[in-house]
Structures are given as C-alpha cells and as structure tokens.
Design a protein around this nucleic acid. Sequence first.
DNA 1: GATGAATGAGGGTTCATTCAT
DNA 2: AATGAATGAACCCTCATTCAT
Lengths: 209, 209, 209, 209
Amino acid sequence: MSDCERHKIMAIDREKRDRIINAAMKEFNKGYKNASTDAIVKEAGISKGLLFHYFGSKDKLLDFIIEYAIEVVVKEYFELINFEQRDILERIWQTVLLKFDLSYKYPMMFDFLTTAYKENMNGVVLEMYGRVMSEFTPRFFSGIDESLFKDGIEPKMAMNVIYWTQVGYSHSQLEQIDSTDIIDFQKEYERYLSEIQSYFDLFRKIFYK
Amino acid sequence: MSDCERHKIMAIDREKRDRIINAAMKEFNKGYKNASTDAIVKEAGISKGLLFHYFGSKDKLLDFIIEYAIEVVVKEYFELINFEQRDILERIWQTVLLKFDLSYKYPMMFDFLTTAYKENMNGVVLEMYGRVMSEFTPRFFSGIDESLFKDGIEPKMAMNVIYWTQVGYSHSQLEQIDSTDIIDFQKEYERYLSEIQSYFDLFRKIFYK
Amino acid sequence: MSDCERHKIMAIDREKRDRIINAAMKEFNKGYKNASTDAIVKEAGISKGLLFHYFGSKDKLLDFIIEYAIEVVVKEYFELINFEQRDILERIWQTVLLKFDLSYKYPMMFDFLTTAYKENMNGVVLEMYGRVMSEFTPRFFSGIDESLFKDGIEPKMAMNVIYWTQVGYSHSQLEQIDSTDIIDFQKEYERYLSEIQSYFDLFRKIFYK
Amino acid sequence: MSDCERHKIMAIDREKRDRIINAAMKEFNKGYKNASTDAIVKEAGISKGLLFHYFGSKDKLLDFIIEYAIEVVVKEYFELINFEQRDILERIWQTVLLKFDLSYKYPMMFDFLTTAYKENMNGVVLEMYGRVMSEFTPRFFSGIDESLFKDGIEPKMAMNVIYWTQVGYSHSQLEQIDSTDIIDFQKEYERYLSEIQSYFDLFRKIFYK
DNA sequence: GATGAATGAGGGTTCATTCAT
DNA sequence: AATGAATGAACCCTCATTCAT
C-alpha cells in the first residue's frame, strides 16, 4: 500500500476512520469472501463510493486493515508491556489490562487478526505478524522470576495454565456479549476485571510460595 | 430442518448420500462463500437440480451437514462419557481420549466443525452447538465429587482452569499440525497424551487433597 | 476464443442466437464502453446470467461477435461474388443484392464491422479483417472489362463514382429508417432496388459505349 | 439548452471557457463513455463543482460543445457558401475548399464532430445536425442551373452522384490519414485538391453539355 | 426422480452528480 | 463563485435457485 494512499486514509476524520476500521474488522472476521462491502458501509454509516474512494478495492481495504491492526497491536500492546516485571502473574495481568484498553477502541482487533492469520488473508504482511508473534511468545515467557513458584511446580506449565485460563475466560465472556450494544461498558469492565482477578488470586495461592 | 426434509434425505441410497455429505464437507471446509454448489454436485456426481430437490438450498444443505456432524459427535463422544466417574480430572481425561478417537475416525469432521464455528456459518452452528453445549456443559460439571478438592479451593474455578487448560493445549497443538499430511499419527498421539497428562498430574497435585 | 466456447454458443437455438448477435451488434455499434450488457439482454429477451453463461464476459462476447461477423461476411458476401462477371456495373449490382440479403438477417452487420474496425475493438481479429478487405478491394476492381467504357472515360474513376454512389445511396436510406420496426420489408426492398437501379441505368448511359 | 444556461457559460472569462471547451473536445473525442469529467476538470484546471455549476451535467456539457462546434461550422462553412453560384459543380467545389480551410484552422473540431456523429452521442448531434442539414441540403441543391446538364440526364440524380462521390472520396482519404502527425500538410492538401478536381472534370464532361 | 438451461438478486466497482463549506 | 468530499445509480459479473422437460 503506497504512502499516498495511506496518507489519504489517515487524513480522514479520526472518529469516522475508526468506524470504518471497526466495521471492516467485524465483517472480515467472517472470512474474506463472506465479508460484504455493503455491510461494511452500512455499519460504518458511509456510502459505497466513499469506501472505494479511500481504499480503492476490497483487497486494498483488507490490506490496510491488516497493516493497521498489526501496527496498533505492536505499538499499543507489545511495546507497552513492561518486561522488567518478572512476576509472571503481574506480567500477564498487564496484558489483560492492555488488551482491554485496546478492545475498547477496536473490539474485534484480536479476533480479526487471528482470523486473518488463519485464513492467511494477506501472505506478506501476516507472515511478518507471525514472525513478530513467534518472537514475542518466547520473550514473554522468559526472564520470569521462577523463584516465586513453590517447589515441585514446573514454572513453564504453570505459566501455560495461567495464560490459557485467561484466554478461556476472555472467550467465555465474549460469547455472552452481543457486541453491537455495549450498555454500561464501565460496569461490565469492572465485573470482568474482578472475576479474572479472582482467578489470578487463585493462581497466586496455588502456584506461589 | 423439518422431519419431512430429513426423511427425504435419509431415504437416499446410503452410498449416494455419503458421497454428497463428503463432497459438501470438503467444499464447506473452504468457508461458506467459497463452497460452490457446482463443485459439490460435480464431486458427488449428481445434477444441480437433484441437490436442491433434496436439500432445498445451500443453507439447508449446510444445516443438514452440521446437524449430521453434531449428531455423530453427540453419539460417539458425549454419550460415551461415563458420568459415574465423579472425579473431574478423570472425567475430563475421558473426553481427551474420546475426542482423539473421533478425530482419528473422521478427520474431516472436526476440521469442518471448526471452520463452521469460526465462520459462525449461517448462525445455525452456534445455535445448535450452543444448545448442545448448554445442556452438556452444566451436566458435565455437575455430580462432581468436590470433596476431592483442597479446602480453600473454589471447585467451580478449579474446574474451569482445568477445562480451559485442556482447550488451550489442544489449540496450541492444532496450530502446529498441517492436517493434510499426518505422518506417524501414532507417535504424535502418544506425545499429545503424554504432555496433556502431565498437566493433569499438575492439577491433581495443586487442587486435590 | 476456444473451440469449446464456440461450440457451446453454436449449440444455442439458432433463432435465439441470432437475436443475441443482432442485439450485441446494435449495442456495440455505439462503441465498446457505451454498449450495455443490460441493453443487450433486454433487446435479445434473455437473462443477464444466460449471456454470461454462454459468453463469459463482455470482452469475449465482443470477440465472438467480431469473429462471427467477419466469418459471415466472408462466406455470405465475399465468397459469393462472381468474379467472372467482368462488367463492373453488374459486379457491383451483385454486391447490392448480397448486402441486402445479409442485412435482412443481420441488419447491423456492416455498420458494426465498420465501427469495430475504426475503434479497433479487437486488434488481432480486425487486423485480419483489414487484410481481407485490403486484398478484396483491389481484386474487386480488377479483371474488369474496360472496353465497355466510352473512350475518354477513365475506368478507375468511373468505378469509384459508381461505388461511392451506391454507398451514399445506401446510407441516405438507412438514415430514413427506424430500424426497430421494419414494416413491409418486401415493399421497401423493391423500392430500394428500383431506385438504385435507376442510378445504375444512368451510369450505363453516361459511362458505357 | 436554455438561453439562461448558455448565458451563464458565455459569461465565463473567455480564456477559461476556451480551456474548458478544448479539454472537453479532447476528452469527448475518446467517445462519450470514455470521456471522464475528472480528466476534463484536471485538463481545464478547474474544480469538479464548477464544471457542474456551469454546465449542469455531462450531457449538457456535450450538448453545448456540439452546439458550439456546429455554430462554428455554420458560421465558417455554410454561411460562406456563395449561393449565387448556380453551377452545382462549382458550388460543391466551394464546399471542398471551405471544409479544407476549416479543418486546417480547427483540426480537432471535425474529429470531434465525426466521433460525435459516429457514436450518435446523446441523440443531440443527430437532432442538431439533422436540423441544420435538412435546412441546408435542399437549399444547397436548389437554385441550380439545370440547363447546364445534357438532355436525358436527370439533374437531381446527377447532383447526388456528384455529392456522394465527393463524400466517398473524402472518407477514403480520411481513412488513410493518421491525424496525429500531419506531415507536410501543404503537399497533402495539393494532392487532395488535384485528385478531387479530376473527378469534377469527369462530371463536367459526362453530365454537362 | 433426475436434468441442466435459464434466471435474477447481489457482489465489487466506477463515476457523474450533489452539497456543505 | 469555487471547492472536493460524499453520494448512489448503474456497470459487469457470479452463483444459488428454479422449472420445463
């Protein structure tokens, strides 16, 4: 995607741009072919012509969304994690908060990226994402203060359990939400954090000294 | 899907019906929109008209295939679980073995169901799956011998952790497998079981008395 | 255009095929971009889908029409001219009759080919047509019995005058006809032939001995 | 096109108006559909909105350009014909010279009008052209000194033959010219006039006493 | 039951036209 | 008057669905 095109897009009013991006993520999450540009413009509240004025084609729209999503995830998630925090529970807790913040602005971002990656929607860019991810995961689980764990607890396994629990809980929550009307987001947010925190408390009790 | 329609389908010569079902699963595995009714009838060796005579529409064909797949999963998975086993770890362990057997007998079926679920195909999967699961899940987690848990461990949460860990581990394995060439299935099978067993050993140690 | 595709098209019911061909010629005569496939199917009385089922694309439809038109013109016009007739007036008179017969089945054929050639609608095929034409024209005006002309009349010029008069007359007639409803074709036919014959009589008088 | 609209257009700064007219002729020469209003405004150096402010629509812009072109043709062609010349050969000879002068001064104009006529652009050309021509043609062929013709020569027919020959010759010349690079215009001009003159000599000989 | 030619709604895309500024 | 972002009707094309046979 040329800089010129990117520039044209980034010049759009921020609120409208985010509406388009979110609508596109939501649609593309169904798969490339299943995604309808009609549905995107309807959801974003713009005209068909405008979408193509900015993005040129469905393909280029997808490319932009993927690049943008990766950029945002890298800048507002990966790069904000404090790796000096050597307590894995606290480190994962950071990701919970960061993901939550991101999900407020772009609710479908992580789901979309997962789908895009699995469908290999854009070979080149997503390969980069794969590389970033495969570098990130080991780094995330390294430099951990394993002395916090009880004797007899394999730290690697414990970390996986913590990670999968957090993922599982998030998904179980998502399934209950009709993402279109998020009523009382703040309240939901607090309940969500409080529940997941209780799992972290459990882990601290059973895994840590 | 009405019983009348089901009846009409089940009345088809078994061999021809299986040809259609297999062709449909193979096509739908590409995603709903990518699946072509032309390709299905060509693969199944029947005419376009006949497919629609039997199934009415692409949607209904998909519904049938999903129902059929779920039916098999229910009969050869859910119903084989021994609910007299009141130890949750042992009960979940059963599911690991059963799932594995099924994916050995019908490798396409789980791929298809996964795709159908990921794409939320037609809204039907989620409804069907949701119905089955919402009946199954509470039952699965009920009648558990909670006396096995240590004091101070909330059994409900512990069970969720066990469940999400098993799901998370399975997914992490699936992502590493290129399902087309299953080399040395037996060996993989053993490694898989052995690794997940070590997690169950961990849970037994930390959650149980 | 592959033989397979041609075969599929030639298998269409003759009357329907000619309806499509005539509708396409009429539309494409406006220029490629101005031609609307919607207008073609409407005029031909078929559905959009069928047009594309047979021809694949607007481009391929045009290619077929051009190839077909050239083929017809060669077989039912060029090749039917009797070059043993050495009297130029009689030779041109033949073309008047042949063109008229062709115009009955395919009214737009010659106009369409002219437009197609001028717009260079299909480089490869029309180049061939150009070659055929550039071979045809000199051949048409060669082998003429020049002894029929009066002394002092340059035969080459006389022949051009005869030819351009016939073309000019034809065009003056076409402009008066609303080609959609050809009422009483037979009567028009006779008037047309009778009028143009009077020009030929004139030429015989002024040019011939 | 209403006088009000014409007035608005004619009120535009002459230099800017000519820029628009020239840009429009250049674009429309590609064919109606191929002509892009975007290209016109870019070439003319004005905004999209302004074009439509002045001309209302692409169709109306075309109408204006055609009217304008025809107006020029009328003023610098039709109205310069000397109808006191009662010798039809001399009268037609005048048109040959006038047309040639015009195409020398406005080479684009005849190209554009030819394209407009061939494409039957917008139905307007034909109507305009038809109106002008249907007034012009009878007048052109009236007031002729028929006493110049030999006995037994129908003057009407002879005049048609002369006219069609001149048209036919012009067309045969146009087809040989690649109008973009007019090399040695003067030489071509002389050859053209000399050739057509020989036809007029022929006609004088065969038709006149 | 069985066929496949025929249909037309809907897809992505373009571009003349409008309108708030 | 002058702008250009925004619109939506119309384009070509696809494909699930129908229906005469």
